[in-house]
């Protein structure tokens, strides 16, 4: 578990290109700010290249993608590949969560696909908010120890 005094992290908060929902982003922004993080909220319907551009501009400690329209796993896979394809954004920790598939989707397969595409964590359903906040708190600040190999 994470340490009780969280480190301040810069987070780029976004959703996927086809998702027009906002409240999840507004809520996450408030929550992450309360935990001391700095949040760049890109709003709804964010094209992949805008996420990449925002990461290049803001150099965040993490990218948090929240999607609730059921297309999150489809768009997310493409977004992750875009992030991992660019040398400036290849290594940024990126997580995705929310309602990522339509009802009855195979969560496990979906998560595996998203991880394979390049996400570091997949948080399916809002019950994993504490897992998200814990994950952010544990992220090494960039000037900390470099993680080598062993991933």
């Amino acid at each position: 578990m994470h340490s009780p005094v969280p480190q301040r992290r810069r987070v780029v908060l976004s959703t996927v290109s086809s998702d027009s929902h906002t409240w999840n982003l507004v809520f996450l922004q408030l929550l992450l700010q309360e935990l001391g993080h700095e949040v760049v909220n890109l709003g709804p319907c964010v094209p992949d290249d805008l996420v990449v551009a925002a990461v290049r501009e803001h150099r965040p400690h993490a990218v948090v993608i929240s999607s609730v329209n059921g297309h999150g796993h489809l768009d997310g896979v493409r977004l992750a590949r875009a992030l991992r394809a660019h040398p400036d954004t290849r290594d940024v920790p990126a997580v995705i969560g929310g309602k990522l598939g339509v009802a009855g989707a195979d969560d496990g397969a979906m998560a595996a696909e998203l991880i394979a595409a390049g996400f570091d964590r997949v948080f399916i359903d809002a019950g994993e908010l504490d897992a998200l906040t814990g994950y952010l708190a544990m992220l090494p600040a960039r000037d900390r120890l470099q993680v080598t190999g062993a991933r």
Partner: peptide, 10 residues
Amino acid sequence: DMPLDEIPSG
């Protein structure tokens, strides 16, 4: 659930 991956080698 421990972030053991993040421990650097060495």
